[in-house]
């Protein structure tokens, strides 16, 4: 939403995964899923207020660099604190079975995860589209100065959005870890695919990101079916095509793309 390419987004994911893991081990999965987004949001606010603030009016290249640097620092700090080994994220017995859908059985947790994601997506959409706060955010993305003149607190709003985005990454980090397990590199390995999703959908577009996610998923599995060797290449071809033909993405508002 903030027209910022955030390399630290993967780091948010990783922090979420570790916080989720530790809290879950002590107090159960539900507590882990609550603690992870809160911890990550706090970290994001800190990052935004202390560091990113200095780069608001620098060129985007500098912003990319600083988020990239923080991503490395976070990843390596996690490695330093928790060690480099991959940690399994055990699920409670009740969720680790599989659920019979009639035509095929599907792991219960994955099913719940899919439902959970739909709920979260809807909640975020409500926040952005239906609250006054969301209005400031949406307007702020388009014309920062104008909103400021009208008395909207863009600075606060952008921090809130940044923290919200981070919280989501943290939540997903904790929620997806029982499937993917946790190690310090997880952040980076999710980063690049997430760029693809956002670019295809449209930088700064909410439904764009959702659509991008669906397209990337479908494109991947369709090519796996017809030409498995190309399944990984094809999403990057799609990403490049979108950047070249319509840099604002499928659902992004077209504008002149400048530095």
């Amino acid at each position: 939403m903030l027209r910022l390419v955030n390399f630290a987004h993967g780091a948010f994911y990783a922090i979420g995964a570790y916080v989720g893991l530790i809290v879950t081990q002590q107090y159960g999965l539900a507590a882990g899923l609550i603690a992870a987004p809160i911890a990550v949001a706090l970290f994001a606010v800190l990052f935004d207020r202390v560091l990113l603030r200095l780069f608001y009016d620098k060129e985007p290249t500098a912003q990319i660099l600083v988020t990239f640097g923080v991503a490395i620092v976070v990843e390596e700090s996690l490695r330093f604190i928790f060690g480099g080994t991959t940690r399994p994220f055990p699920l409670p017995e009740s969720l680790s079975g599989s659920f019979n859908l009639g035509f095929a059985s599907y792991p219960t947790y994955r099913l719940l995860l899919a439902l959970g994601i739909i709920v979260v997506v809807f909640a975020v959409w409500l926040f952005i589209e239906r609250t006054d706060y969301g209005l400031i955010v949406r307007a702020g993305v388009r014309d920062r100065t104008m909103v400021q003149l009208l008395g909207g607190n863009v600075k606060l709003a952008s921090t809130v959005v940044f923290a919200l985005g981070a919280a989501l990454a943290g939540l997903v980090g904790a929620a997806a870890s029982p499937i993917y397990s946790v190690d310090p590199n997880t952040g980076f390995s999710f980063l690049v695919p997430s760029f693809v999703v956002v670019v295809i959908g449209g930088l700064g577009s909410f439904w764009g990101a959702v659509l991008g996610g669906l397209i990337v998923g479908e494109l991947g599995s369709l090519t796996t079916l017809f030409f498995p060797a190309a399944s990984d290449v094809v999403i990057y071809v799609a990403m490049a095509l979108v950047l070249l033909v319509r840099p604002s993405g499928l659902l992004g508002e077209s504008e002149i793309i400048r530095g």
């Binding site: 399994p88 599989s98 994955r110 499937i179």
Partner: peptide, 15 residues
């Protein structure tokens, strides 16, 4: 290694 752990555990959840 861990790839086998992930694969076998997921195979179990697929029944």
């Amino acid at each position: 290694g861990k790839d086998m752990v992930a694969c076998l555990n997921q195979a179990a959840s697929f029944g």
